[in-house]
Design a binder for these strands. Structure first.
Length: 421
RNA sequence: GCACAGGUGGCCGAGCGGUUAAUGGCAGCAGACUGUAAAUCUGCCGCUCCUUGGAGCUACGGAGGUUCGAAUCCUCCCCUGUGCACCA
């Protein structure tokens, strides 16, 4: 399943201008544009594809749309015939990337790393072409480095260079801890570029420092410094903070179509335009014209958002699934009816009934994952937020009809069908 | 090693012997309003059990202690930051 097929069957090495067009779209910053152009010229002349690396800490096995901004850009390089290296930072994840952290990260165990790396690959290849992707692990060379090699490597950097880095200096000034080993992270990431002889490295804008370390080190090792292409950090559902699973504002690429569609619809209008740019293949000019139409009142923002949700959902689940997700959404939220394709939860009679055989509604809510605890379920019932088969429920227990029973349980926006037997 | 300042619920941050499940803020959830938006307003926001009002349990870095009673006082330990020292 490939999200983007912008240009398929592209002959290798298009004219540089055309390559640049595709590569520059949605890039936050390129260091440096002229170098990239030059390197592409060279590759076209010699027939040597560029080596394009992106590294991943196998720490977050659940990819979300924020990650796909970068993946899509890698895919673009791939489509242009260049070599994409998917680097699993199994060694660096022993440290934990200090980027965006105000706290030292806990190191992972070997088992966790391996497991995460596998899950990661599965997900990444929904966007990248697995056949054409070189998968590497940085333990391959970092593991061999040893203490001596590490010392030699770190000698290329000074403490003040490291402290220039925003994350470090902020933490330092705020009198927060910085562990010594965290300073090693950028150095090792930089060495990856040396070991792989990268022409280009991709990363989020928050990775700038790390990416630049690669350039620095490559110079020391007599290589041409890599071009650095940074993708923007996509805001999550709240529209403010970066999309991140731990912040609870993410849309995972493995989420069912209904969820994905619904979450996309819940973003605010302003954010929608960013999603159009970074998560679809519409040209910049096309997005601009959509926006102009909305501003001019020619089209309704909700309709435009529905189209966005549909395109993105279709990219991961196919056109048919996206269409049915949309129909469901309309039925549930616009027409306030009950959706057809609600998720069913099988519940056994004993789990949710009291000794007299009455259905305990709070237990049902917990069992169905709609409430985190019985206490919370009770609160929500008291707030008249719970509906059973479409009617507001205000009590505690209910007499069950004949088994097996199907009850549509709804708490706020979310609803499920409980099948009790 | 010494001195000082700290460690409170998802996060930030009050409290400094009892009316404290613990003020505020953020995040989150629900209701109203809507375009399931956003903004705004309102309510909720540890867990369990009976119930429309209660009962119990767990919680303020860890372990002890003082006290009728401790997040609050004492002792020891762990962790963080800062300064000084060490760097024979």
């Amino acid at each position: 399943m490939v999200v983007t097929i912008l240009i398929s069957d592209m002959p290798e090495f298009l004219p540089v201008d055309e390559q640049m067009d595709l590569l520059e779209k949605g890039a936050a910053e390129i260091i440096r544009v002229s170098d990239l152009r030059e390197r592409l010229e060279e590759s076209r002349k010699t027939g040597r594809p560029l080596r394009v690396k992106a590294g991943f800490d196998p720490t977050a096995p659940d990819l979300h749309l924020g990650h796909t901004v970068l993946m899509r850009k890698l895919r673009h390089f791939q489509q242009l015939g260049h070599t994409v290296i998917f680097l699993v930072g199994d060694f660096t994840s022993l440290i934990g990337d200090p980027t965006g952290r105000n706290v030292t990260r806990k190191p992972l165990t070997r088992e966790q790393i391996d497991k995460n790396a596998e899950t990661y690959k599965q997900q990444v290849f929904r966007i990248l072409d697995a056949e054409k992707t070189e998968v590497r692990y940085n333990s391959e060379w970092l593991g061999k480095l040893g203490y001596e090699g590490t010392i030699r490597l770190t000698a290329h950097f000074t403490v003040s260079q490291m402290l220039e880095r925003d994350e470090f200096s902020k933490r330092f000034q705020a009198e927060q801890p910085i562990s010594l080993h965290e300073l090693l992270y950028p150095v090792m990431q930089g060495y990856d570029s040396v070991a792989l002889e990268c022409d280009v490295e991709l990363g989020g804008t928050d990775q700038k420092f790390n990416l630049l370390c690669g350039r620095e080190l490559q110079r020391h090792y007599g290589q041409k410094p890599q071009i650095v292409l940074m993708t923007p950090i996509l805001e999550g559902l709240d529209g403010v903070q970066k999309m991140s699973k731990s912040l609870g504002n993410a849309i995972g690429i493995n989420e069912p179509p209904g969820e994905m569609y619904g979450k996309l619809m819940s973003i605010n209008d302003e954010l929608m335009w960013k999603y159009w740019v970074f998560l679809t293949d519409l040209r910049l000019s096309e997005v601009e014209s959509l926006k102009a139409d909305v501003l001019a009142g020619k089209s309704h923002p909700m309709e435009v958002k529905k189209r966005l949700a549909r395109i993105i959902t279709a990219g991961f689940h196919g056109e048919a699934a996206a269409e049915s997700a949309e129909e469901n959404w309309v039925r549930m939220f616009q027409q306030k009816e009950t959706a057809e394709n609600l998720e069913e939860v099988a519940v056994s009679f004993a789990e949710v009934t009291d000794s007299l055989g009455y259905l305990m509604v709070p237990k049902l809510l917990v069992r169905g994952g709609l409430a985190a605890s019985g206490t919370e379920a009770n609160r929500k019932i008291a707030e008249k937020a719970v509906k059973l088969d479409g009617d507001v429920f205000g009590g505690l227990r209910i007499k069950l009809p004949a088994l097996p029973a199907r009850i549509v349980v709804r708490l706020g926006k979310r609803a499920k069908v409980a099948v009790i037997s």
